[in-house]
Design a protein around this nucleic acid. Structure first.
Lengths: 302, 302
DNA sequence: TTGTAGGCGTTATCAT
DNA sequence: ATGATAACGCCTACAA
């Protein structure tokens, strides 16, 4: 069309205050240019951080990411999925709320629209999974602490995140395989469990060593408990987390942790949701290699 | 209609796998049964906690709440608002990202759809505001600490959240009015500022007293810094926060804080968005009375 | 370049 | 109680 016409139309639109109606456009195009992101719990810093980063990963694209929280409730999760489906999202990113009971929501979703499960793997389905290579992450952690102090010269503790999730199991198995003589205890991915675990470690009479946690939220609980008992990180206990949630670089001391490459992951998710039949889209399980971020809680040796 | 017909239709729908197309319904009804919630930053525990609670407040209603994060970026906030407007949400809840630069997004929003500004007040507009009565909250704090120890017998510190937001200004003014001889310092609503403020308090040679913070995130930073220096809460310093973010009852020691009545607030928001012209909807500024939640960081005196 | 018609899936209305 | 029709706002296709 001519430049002049174009301008005329645009300026008229501006004058009249025209606003596209994306609902009508979506109906006509059978496409909404939106993705749904279902989060288990926004009050958990790990998930809210993840939500933020996923959302940020799509900020340059022209699709909008709508976030819904399941509030740790399987029926709310299902409602969120149904709502997104009814609203004709072009794809769905689900962080399952429950290792087994999220299966239904996931199946329903994938039946209607390209769907990926993110971060938590629900067994028994062939819905593509995007996650981190937990074994590799633990390898990084192991190499890091071995480089600081010979492994035979330090007491190593591992605080697990439970065996009811794939990440919990993999992180524990990954670390214990590398260092079987670890003082190991298992719990859940929570701040409270970190506090309890630290209490347990101290009650055994330990006054120094290296504490590896299956998640940052656990490590934050450990820090808080150690500090309450007057023990210093990293002077008395070196401490390492996993995930790199937003506050990890803010706490004192800043937490050494394993960072998931969320940005790269969202790029792949985008690719998979847009071309579900491409080579990438048919991958069943995609594991990304994480990085180790060394901070003050376990500084490099000199 | 007859019971029998009803069942016949429903079962046929189930067999055929019929799913409503909410996009088409929205086009026809000129109503989407959805609200948009715009959050400044999901990585900040206060906002993610708020998002979770707002979302929870609407879980019983039949409208869906879609969350979008502005990532602390005024242009992303504007994009989110435009997207929601294009998608014809029935109402918009905006937590402004910036005290002044969010005005445009807010104005555009309210021009098209019932809009409320939540938690942060942007001056220069008549868009309804829902927030907490910060003066009353500080009154509660003051009464609480005065009841523990006569005010003349304790050194009181106030750590502010900055004067660039209404909550920051009101909380500071509210407390100082009640106790002018406070040792006062001002910063921002952040964990890092809490750490710095604690460092400042200690560097002045103080070893005990009562520290009142304008927000929980600040108080968490204070705790972390005090712990790092081996000082105990509440033994050496009593500590009080504001907001009751999710992790406040988890940290050690659990934080005494002023809880915003989010549930009641969301009920009113819902009312205002649905009946913008009702008595409630025309209120310009609605301030809710908060509660004091006493936890271990400043226990009741015996 | 400009104009017009049809249909996306739903629901409100009007007629049978 | 059931059926037919139009319209929500947009985009595509085809005609003028």
């Amino acid at each position: 069309m001519s430049e002049e016409l174009r301008d005329r139309v645009l300026s008229s639109a501006a004058v009249l205050g025209y606003q596209v109606n994306l609902v009508a456009r979506a109906l006509r195009k059978e496409k909404t240019s939106s993705f749904g992101l279902v989060i288990p719990d926004l009050e958990n810093p790990f998930f809210s951080s993840l939500a933020q980063q996923v959302s940020r990963g799509f900020s340059e694209s022209e699709v909008d990411v709508m976030i819904a929280s399941a509030d740790n409730d399987i029926s709310q999760e299902l409602r969120a999925v149904r709502s997104f489906l009814g609203r004709q999202v072009d794809g769905l990113i689900v962080i399952p709320s429950d290792e087994t009971r999220s299966l239904e929501a996931l199946e329903i979703a994938s039946q209607h629209v390209p769907t990926v499960q993110f971060d938590r793997f629900v067994p028994g389905t062939s819905i593509p999974f995007i996650g981190v290579d937990n074994h590799f992450g633990m390898q990084l952690v192991h190499d890091h602490i071995a480089q600081q102090v010979p492994m035979s010269h330090q007491q190593v503790f591992f605080v697990g995140g439970g065996s009811s999730s794939s990440s919990g199991r993999e992180r524990t198995a990954g670390f214990l395989a590398l260092h079987p003589e670890t003082n190991f205890r298992d719990g859940s991915f929570s701040f409270a469990w970190g506090q309890e675990a630290a209490r347990g470690i101290l009650s055994e009479g330990n006054l120094r060593g290296t504490i590896v946690c299956a998640a940052d939220v656990i490590a934050l609980g450990v820090i808080s408990r150690l500090a309450a008992d007057g023990l210093k990180v990293p002077h008395d206990f070196r401490l390492i987390g996993f995930d790199d949630v937003g506050v990890s670089h803010l706490v004192h001391p800043a937490l050494t942790t394993v960072r998931q490459p969320i940005f790269e992951m969202t790029a792949v998710i985008q690719e998979m949701l847009y071309n579900p039949d491409s080579k990438m889209g048919t991958q069943f399980r995609l594991m990304f290699r994480p990085d180790l971020i060394v901070r003050q809680s376990s500084p490099h040796s000199h």
